[in-house]
């Protein structure tokens, strides 16, 4: 029997995908966990950032810094477009608009008319060129056992984690500051905060922009080692991010990171176990059913978290207690 999937699952601890989801979930935590904005369009922010980076790198040949800037500016503009009409309204409007806007982005980039720029359903390959060009790591293979990385894999992992920790530090500073106090107040009751002379609308906009920026950076890290696929940024991704955030703790800084690691380990372990079960006929399922069953597991996990540990792994019990 082949148990190497266990090692591969543990490779998820540091994989770029884990980093990307940790960062995007951190952005969601700023919006949802701290400010109370029900942002169901986080995948859309990732898509905007990813396309901003990939198009400017591959199609326009921009340098790395300019493409990163394009991704971030794109996400901020997207935040403005979504925020201006909805942030004055009740919370539910933002959720509806964001979920729809994310889907609009995905369908727009897939439109045949835009294929020369967006690559249509195939997405865009090769956005790693400018990033790998500045890789200082000597050519070679690094790692142990089945977990082997070439110099470019290692480069994105290192840069990705450094960025993630920097972003976590930044968000942590923000949340411990008077700025953080205001957004947390908005989460609790925005009229009370307004009555104390704070420009609630502008703080919500800032939170949405920060969340979007983190999603854009996440998308860049996600596409550099692989490629940009529009369907990776569907509604499903947003719900993965919500699962990760709730798993780790929606009002914690390290929660999204821990949540992302656990999420991808579990998903990849269950995938390995299910393949074994299918190969040896332990379960009455076929390999076609295996994919959807993984998501059933994610769904059940989400329900279990919300029921038994609403504050997440790192959250404080009392917070969930009081908000119940």
């Amino acid at each position: 029997m082949d148990f190497s999937f266990i090692w591969l699952a543990f490779g998820q601890i540091i994989s770029p995908q884990t980093i990307a989801y940790a960062l995007a979930a951190l952005g969601l935590t700023v919006c949802f966990g701290f400010t109370g904005l029900v942002n169901f369009g986080q995948a859309g922010f990732m898509a905007v950032g990813g396309y901003g980076f990939a198009i400017t790198t591959v199609k326009f040949g921009w340098p790395l810094w300019a493409s990163v800037l394009a991704a971030i500016v794109g996400a901020i503009i997207f935040a403005f477009i979504l925020g201006i009409p909805t942030l004055r309204l009740r919370a539910d409007y933002l959720s509806i608009v964001t979920i729809a806007a994310a889907e609009i982005v995905r369908y727009t980039v897939k439109t045949p008319q835009f294929v020369p720029v967006t690559g249509g359903t195939d997405g865009i390959n090769g956005s790693s060129s400018t990033f790998d060009a500045i890789n200082p790591i000597p050519v070679g293979h690094y790692g142990v056992g089945v977990l082997m990385y070439n110099q470019d894999d290692l480069w994105i992992i290192i840069v990705g984690w450094v960025l993630t920790l920097l972003c976590a530090l930044l968000v942590s500073r923000l949340m411990r500051s008077p700025w953080g106090r205001i957004v947390k107040g908005i989460r609790e009751d925005e009229d009370a905060v307004r009555a104390l002379g704070k420009n609630v609308y502008w703080y919500k906009m800032q939170a949405l922009m920060i969340g979007g920026t983190l999603a854009a950076i996440a998308a860049i890290i996600n596409i550099i080692p692989t490629s940009l696929q529009p369907d990776n940024y569907g509604t499903q991704t947003t719900f993965f991010l919500f699962t990760i955030m709730l798993l780790g703790g929606a009002t914690t800084i390290m929660g999204p990171i821990v949540g992302s690691i656990i999420f991808w380990i579990v998903l990849s372990l269950s995938d390995g176990l299910l393949s074994l079960a299918v190969t040896y006929h332990w379960l009455p399922i076929t390999s076609v059913q295996q994919g959807p069953i993984r998501f059933v597991i994610v769904g059940v996990a989400l329900i279990l978290i919300v029921v038994f540990r609403p504050q997440g792994i790192l959250g404080k019990k009392s917070e969930a207690y009081f908000s119940a």
Binding site: R181, K184, G185, R187, E188, D189, D191, A192, V193, R194, A195, L196, G197, K198, N199, V200, T251, E319, F322, S323
Partner: peptide, 22 residues
């Protein structure tokens, strides 16, 4: 509303608004 408060006219609410998780 927030500018009204900044001008020195501040109110409380009939239905109390304590910010529970602060």
């Amino acid at each position: 509303a927030y500018k009204v408060a900044r001008k020195g006219m501040v109110r409380t609410f009939q239905l109390t608004k304590a910010l529970g998780l602060l």
